[in-house]
């Protein structure tokens, strides 16, 4: 297997995640798109680890997984709070800080 096929797959997933973050109108879906990007990064880490024939890639992927879990927990709490205050989960409605 070529290393590049994994890297190109991850580039595609990362691009899809960027598209989702820009176009989605529901905050939970924006978080899901961020998860897509993190999965893409994980594929890169593990592919490089397999190329180097050691477990370091997996260790880094585990760290990314942990951060992703923490991010989803805090992110959904924030989404819930915004929904409770604004009655809307659209990130465009959370514009109190806008000048």
């Amino acid at each position: 297997m070529l290393l590049n096929q994994f890297l190109l797959l991850s580039a595609f997933l990362f691009g899809t995640g960027i598209y989702g973050v820009i176009t989605r109108k529901h905050t939970v879906l924006v978080l899901a798109s961020v998860e897509l990007m993190l999965v893409a990064v994980n594929i890169n880490m593990v592919a490089f680890g397999a190329t180097l024939n050691n477990a370091v890639g997996q260790v880094f992927a585990l760290f990314v997984l942990t951060i992703a879990a923490a991010e989803v927990g805090v992110g959904l709490a924030i989404v819930l709070l915004i929904y409770r205050n604004l009655r809307s989960a659209n990130p465009d409605d959370a514009s109190v800080l806008k000048g």
Binding site: L2, L3, N4, L8, G15, I18, A47, T51
Partner: peptide
């Protein structure tokens, strides 16, 4: 973004095998 990434990957690891 994906195009830049893909170009960089192809440039750097063109035919590296796992």
């Amino acid at each position: 973004f994906a195009g830049t990434l893909a170009w960089a990957f192809l440039d750097q690891w063109g035919s590296d095998k796992i």
